[in-house]
């Protein structure tokens, strides 16, 4: 099914926003506004943008610690996300989660999780809940290549197929778990083949091509939604930066990085939109200006926002705190 012109322009804007957001976050980190671990998504934008555009607004999205772009794709306001990175009370988690733990329940973005693979049983449980409630929803669960070596990945795949749960596992294979290459950590280089052991369809998709990601996810989401069970997609992509802000990424060659950057998903889609007459250069330029403006405004908003009050320290632990009355 062809992707409507308006949707394609939206995908382009989305990817621009993701990239500019990450560049802004890197500036905020360098300036000392952001602390802790922060993992940038630059280079992988086509995956989150394409995949999440396949979903309905009330499908669940669950992600890893590299979660900024996924929340943006879900429509969470960039200023609330930037404020979270800055540790401010206006942040999407009131400053208590930070970069690795975005959450926006109102948009069914049910979190960024920082234990590799730890969120996959939760994704499976979301799908079980959907099935038990007879709801017309699916779960899109993002994971990294490293997660596919964790025990809970296999437990989740097994249960998801056992009960034919509506979940799409989308592995963003950027070929490195921090510094360890897939080839030295996984018995299969082709991660989607791990689905075979569970009788689950496994597909590979070019994660540097947003249209390809969208098409593959459309199909996978349709399959899961109609009750046929889970799917494992492997989107091959590349993170341009190190694993996190403190990783210079010396384990990768410049030649390898250059090769991937030639396939950068943003200029690639720009060329396609121009060649096919879907957008004009003026529209694309305006989109870049708009992304810059949004991120600049988000950074100003974050910087202006207050830190959480000391009273917040003991808030949000439990729903029910009184037991004697």
């Amino acid at each position: 099914m062809a992707i409507p012109a308006a949707s394609q322009l939206k995908l382009y804007k989305n990817m621009l926003l993701m990239r500019r957001f990450e560049e802004g976050a890197a500036e905020g980190y360098a300036d000392g506004f952001i602390g802790g671990f922060m993992h940038l998504y630059i280079g992988q934008e086509a995956v989150a943008a394409g995949a999440i555009s396949s979903l309905n607004h009330d499908d669940y999205v669950i992600a890893t610690y590299r979660d900024h772009a996924h929340a943006l794709a879900r429509g969470t306001p960039p200023e609330a996300l930037m404020a979270e990175l800055y540790g401010r009370e206006t942040g999407v988690c009131k400053g208590k989660g930070g970069s690795m733990h975005f959450y926006d329940g109102s948009r069914y973005f049910v979190g960024g999780y920082a234990i590799v693979g730890g969120h996959l049983p939760i994704a499976t449980g979301l799908a079980l809940g959907i099935q038990m409630r007879n709801e017309d929803r699916v779960v899109m669960a993002f994971l990294g290549d490293g997660a596919s070596n964790q025990g809970v990945f296999h437990e989740s795949m097994n249960m998801a197929k056992l009960w034919d749960l509506p979940v799409v596992f989308l592995c963003e294979n950027n070929f490195y778990g921090i510094a360890t290459a897939v080839g030295t950590s996984s018995s299969y280089n082709e991660i989607h083949r791990k689905a075979q052991g569970y009788g689950i369809p496994g597909r590979v998709v070019d994660g540097m091509d947003v249209r390809a990601v969208r098409a593959a996810c459309d199909e996978a989401v349709r399959y899961a939604r109609q009750g046929s069970g889970p799917v494992l997609l492997e989107a091959r992509c590349y993170r341009y930066q190190g694993h996190s802000m403190t990783d210079p990424g010396k384990y990768r060659s410049q030649a390898e990085a250059d090769l991937w950057k030639k396939r950068d998903p943003i200029p690639r889609l720009a060329r396609q939109l121009l060649e096919e007459g879907i957008a004009t250069q003026a529209e694309l330029d305006a989109a870049q200006v708009e992304a810059n403006r949004i991120v600049e405004a988000a950074m100003q908003y974050a910087e202006r926002s207050p830190e959480p009050s000391p009273a917040a320290l003991y808030e949000d632990l439990f729903v029910e705190n009184t037991f004697h009355g």
């Binding site: 669940y60 499976t124 449980g125 079980l128 809940g129 959907i130 709801e135 437990e155 097994n158 249960m159």
Partner: peptide
Amino acid sequence: DTPIAEAAIVGLAIGAAITGMRP
């Protein structure tokens, strides 16, 4: 009845609880 997979059993409870079930 579930497989013998304790980590996933607890994870299932979390996910199902988010959807509004009471596992």
